[in-house]
């Protein structure tokens, strides 16, 4: 469902307030990428209601956030070719902004841009408004049949092998990756699709103080209930590391035993953790990037 004018006005006000206006160079780049996406997805239709117009509306909103709010740096984009991949990423932050930013990166940074299809939980897929909006922008229920359909059509998918556990971490558990599930590796084996390990650094600090009231969440029928000090995510600078595609073993069956699969999943997990360790050493100081936008917001008045 395309955004209406009122939402556009609110969006433009917020962009102005948070200094999210793109430079003319970025604007031109965005338009070029959007043209390429329109061309690629002109005749594409999927059974979840994908709509390229909604994708573009969403990119118009997320790209300024990507560029100016989270000041995303991307490393290793040269590792990617124009072919289907299963992107496997660590899961950080309390809301799946990491997924949104990876998707924006693939759409905006690749020479031949793609819409990355994120796998979402059934809770989000069935949620009013959000479920429909995410389906229109290419996010679908994380189900093997769904993944197979997309990969058969030459599309790439984004999975978070940590699952919900990945984004339900309290402050003291930040950057502590949870055990990866084996499902995504079996899908990759079945479809013979290489896996690209992705690491997101900096997204945990969007909500620096978090406590998960899991028991209360259960009572309310929610997967979890994060209690945070801030409602909006803070502009923590985010780095996205794209690793080299993981070569799948030649003769491994999709029905191989868990222990055989586990060896490979652990290698991918290790690669993501190494990227995470390096990324944490090289990350930009967080509070420098928080101070200026906060000052702008609080003290600059009468901005046009």
């Amino acid at each position: 469902m395309p955004y209406n004018n009122r939402e556009k006005k609110i969006g433009s006000y917020m962009f102005d307030k948070f200094s999210l206006k793109l430079s003319s160079e970025d604007k031109v780049h965005k338009e070029e990428q959007i043209l390429k996406l329109r061309e690629r997805y002109r005749d594409y239709q999927d059974p979840w209601g994908f709509n390229i117009d909604t994708v573009i509306e969403a990119l118009n909103l997320t790209f300024p956030i990507y560029k100016k709010y989270f000041k995303i740096r991307i490393f290793g984009i040269e590792n990617l070719e124009d072919k289907p991949y299963i992107f496997a990423s660590n899961h950080t932050g309390q809301i799946p902004i990491d997924g949104m930013m990876i998707t924006t990166a693939i759409a905006m940074e690749m020479d031949k841009p793609r819409v990355l299809h994120s796998m979402v939980d059934s809770f989000l897929a069935g949620f009013p408004f959000l479920g429909s909006l995410s389906a229109q922008t290419g996010s679908i229920l994380g189900d093997r049949g769904n993944c197979k359909w997309l990969l058969d059509k030459g599309e790439s998918i984004l999975v978070f092998p940590e699952g919900m556990k990945g984004i339900t971490k309290s402050s003291h558990e930040f950057y502590d990756t949870r055990q990866f599930s084996n499902g995504f590796f079996r899908i990759a084996l079945g479809q013979k699709t290489p896996i690209v390990p992705i690491t997101v650094v900096g997204a945990e600090e969007m909500f620096p103080l978090v406590f998960h009231a899991k028991k209360l969440g259960k009572v309310l029928g929610l997967p979890t209930l994060p209690l945070t000090a801030n409602i909006l995510p803070l502009p923590s600078p985010i780095d996205i590391y794209i690793g080299k595609p993981y070569e799948l073993p030649d003769h491994m069956s999709v029905d191989a035993q868990d222990k055989e699969i586990r060896v490979h999943v652990q290698k991918i997990e290790k690669q993501i953790n190494e990227q995470l360790k390096n990324g944490l050493e090289k990350r930009r100081p967080f509070f420098d990037s928080v101070r200026k936008p906060l000052q702008d917001f609080l003290f600059k008045k009468g901005r046009s």
């Binding site: 059974p47 979840w48 059934s122 809770f123 897929a125 069935g126 479920g131 229920l141 189900d143 093997r144 049949g145 769904n146 359909w149």
Partner: peptide, 8 residues
């Protein structure tokens, strides 16, 4: 018709 239905 359930939110966790697979396709096809």
């Amino acid at each position: 018709a359930l939110s966790d239905n697979s396709i096809f």
